[in-house]
């Protein structure tokens, strides 16, 4: 399994990620750590804690991949570390990771590639301590691009995992 090494590495990060997990009851986030996941209660007009909007605002709902690749880069790992922490905060939240590809591949291979991408993120979350039962994966291959158009910029943004709160 190609994720064995990654898993060991991720486990080392796990401690740091959980150390400063904020209290849900805290009135204000005083930690001063920008990377902290959303622990704020819903301010008027703000997202409901543990919601998709909360995830989007305070974690980011997607990570990107290189062409025909499924390995996570440092940005992706950072996002997933925030996501793991956020999921630690909101223990009742389960998510689906959608794996997507750009249109510059064939349909069936891209279904397999999207599966591999969604599983790469799931593996990392599990390595960070998230219960695997809280994370399901689905591949859409090249069927659901996020950005319209047929150009390098669109393709780069369409090679992605998207995190969806169930």
């Amino acid at each position: 399994m190609r994720f064995k090494l990654l898993t060991l590495f991720a486990a080392a990060l796990l401690v740091a990620a959980c150390e400063t997990a904020p209290e849900e009851t805290a009135a204000v986030d005083t930690s001063g750590v920008v990377e902290q996941p959303a622990a704020q209660p819903a301010s008027p007009g703000g997202p409901t804690p543990g919601s998709q909007e909360d995830l989007l605002l305070n974690v980011g709902d997607r990570v990107f991949f290189a062409f025909d690749r499924s390995d996570l880069n440092s940005d992706s790992r950072a996002t997933l570390e925030k996501l793991a922490s956020w999921m630690t905060t909101y223990q009742n939240v389960t998510i689906t990771i959608e794996g997507h590809c750009d249109e510059r591949g064939t349909r069936e291979y891209n279904l397999a590639l999207g599966e591999r991408r969604s599983d790469a993120a799931r593996d990392y979350l599990v390595a960070l301590g998230v219960d695997g039962g809280r994370v399901t994966t689905i591949s859409y291959g090249k069927e659901r691009p996020a950005v319209l158009g047929s150009n390098e910029d669109a393709w780069a943004q369409n090679r992605r995992d998207v995190f969806v709160v169930n």
Binding site: E108, A112, E115, R116, D123, S139
Partner: peptide, 26 residues
């Protein structure tokens, strides 16, 4: 347990051959 895809019949029509994705691997 995982996605099944890329199906095709065998020439005698008795089987379907396809991919199964298990833990990300097809």
């Amino acid at each position: 347990p995982g996605m099944t895809f890329a199906p095709r019949f065998s020439p005698d029509g008795n089987k379907v051959i396809m991919s199964l994705a298990d833990n990300g691997n097809s």
